[in-house]
Write a protein that binds this DNA or RNA. Structure first.
Lengths: 138, 138
DNA sequence: GCCAGAGTACTCGGATAATCCATGTCCGAGTGCGTACGG
DNA sequence: CCGTACGCACTCGGACATGGATTATCCGAGTACTCTGGC
């Protein structure tokens, strides 16, 4: 759970798309607002495109645009798009099955982890991209 | 928020300490149960020690032991110890202040992020290290 | 004036280098126990 | 027999390599607009 800023940058990008209106904007322009490299934006948007949140178009006048109404895109959707389904990672190596704790810890943690993730996502669902874009406009 | 297993390994280690009784156990032994390198355990336990959850002792018969009653250590405490206070990371570089979105996005996200983190931690508080150790024992 | 064609500028997408972070290895510092020696 | 001092084994802690992943740079592929030439 080493905090990377992928989630934040994804929200930033989607808010920028919602803020800019229907015309597509380029990854270079987005990178200018986020203050990073365009390729980072492209890779991030590629996962958002896989989640059917945005589309891309090459050529002059091309760029990226929203596929869904920003009022119907919640932070929960964004998190799932950029982080995958399982939020808490289990051990990277298999614990020692000869140890009573190592043998059972993963199954013991499954419940609390799932519950915590659900609580997190339900809270994130309260905020939409449209709400963020609206506040940035005002 | 690239999922690392620090949180899981920390829980595993504390559960092992609670399970093993009052005598200190070594980082090498813990590493055997987690199936990783002892130095990884030491670095992780160093942050748990900073949170006053465990203590370390060198020399023969030394090792690590709990400083608090495991019934009073919740997963919330563990998360705060290993991940720091802020769970969601903001941008690693400063967004462009000339952009309306870039200028405001961080302050706009502060509220939802804090709320989501609070929801997450309240759920994690329901599970204690003692409960996990008890289940591993049975 | 209008249409067709080539040319050009722009954007994404993938391949390849460079950088950064996490992990692993090694050696030193400190501690406690055991042992041996002297009283 | 008892106390003290030395030595040794054990454990943590920090410094230095190593591997993988993330990030940055470069070049190619595709598209839409524009300009030019001909009718």
């Amino acid at each position: 759970m080493n905090n990377s800023s992928r989630f934040t940058v994804a929200i930033h990008t989607l808010t920028l798309l919602a803020h800019s209106g229907p015309d597509p904007i380029t990854s270079e322009y987005i990178a200018g607002s986020v203050n990073t490299n365009p390729v980072v934006i492209r890779r991030l948007l590629a996962s958002l495109r896989a989640a059917k949140l945005v589309s891309s178009q090459g050529g002059p006048g091309g760029g990226w645009q929203l596929l869904k109404d920003p009022r119907r895109i919640s932070l929960r959707d964004v998190l799932n798009a950029v982080e995958g389904s399982s939020f808490f990672a289990l051990h990277s190596t298999v614990p020692n099955p000869l140890c009573p704790v190592g043998r059972t810890i993963q199954s013991l943690l499954a419940g609390p982890f799932k519950s915590a993730q659900e609580a997190l996502e339900q809270d994130l669902e309260r905020t939409t991209i449209a709400a963020l874009a609206e506040r940035a406009k005002g």
